[in-house]
């Protein structure tokens, strides 16, 4: 079965015919070519596919595209405006919160979701918000610093 999916992706309203069993991550990567969102596991294990659905971080690999009717989806590609990195992106870049970069889109979106809800998170808040996202390079130290730097920048 197929569904006509009406959805807003990165600010652009779209209508697409999608199979009912298509995962949101496959819709984003394969149907509309937004390959910034990554697949790091076989489902719900690593957080690399994290996107915002109506502002909340969700695993795109555990979400059926057809269930996103009328939703607002934001991926990592949505954050930079007019070629300028967003605060969270600049934090990850300048503090070296990204080494290989593969977990980064998911990390960045989970952190973006956090800062939208809680602009002044404590370290414990940051750890809690990123608990479902695995990074294998950094030991997370600089990821925490990256989110803190972004929160500071947004506050100033």
């Amino acid at each position: 079965m197929k569904t006509i999916l009406s959805v807003t992706v990165n600010g652009q309203p779209r209508d697409d015919v999608v199979p009912d069993n298509m995962l949101l991550v496959d819709y984003l990567r394969e149907k509309i070519g937004l390959t910034g969102t990554k697949v790091g596991c076989d489902g719900g294990e690593c957080g690399a596919c994290t996107v915002l659905i109506d502002g909340r971080p969700r695993h795109a690999c555990l979400t059926l595209a057809a269930t996103c009717q009328e939703a607002r989806i934001d991926t990592v590609e949505s954050l930079a405006h007019a070629g300028r990195l967003s605060a969270i992106q600049r934090g990850f870049h300048e503090k070296l919160g990204a080494q290989c970069g593969f977990c980064t889109p998911g990390m960045v979106m989970a952190a973006e979701g956090l800062l939208r809800q809680n602009p002044a998170p404590s370290e414990a808040d940051i750890r809690s918000a990123l608990a479902a996202n695995i990074c294998r390079c950094t030991g997370y130290v600089k990821i925490i610093e990256a989110v803190q730097a972004a929160a500071r920048e947004l506050a100033s």
Binding site: L34, T35, G36, T37, T75, V76, E77, L79, A80, L85, Q89, R90, F92, H93, E94, L96, A98, Q99, C100, G101, T104, P105, V108
Partner: peptide, 14 residues
């Protein structure tokens, strides 16, 4: 910061 950092944080890195 890494010379290829902007690509990684924007999702452009292939």
């Amino acid at each position: 910061p890494f010379v290829d950092g902007p690509e990684k944080v924007t999702g452009k890195a292939m």
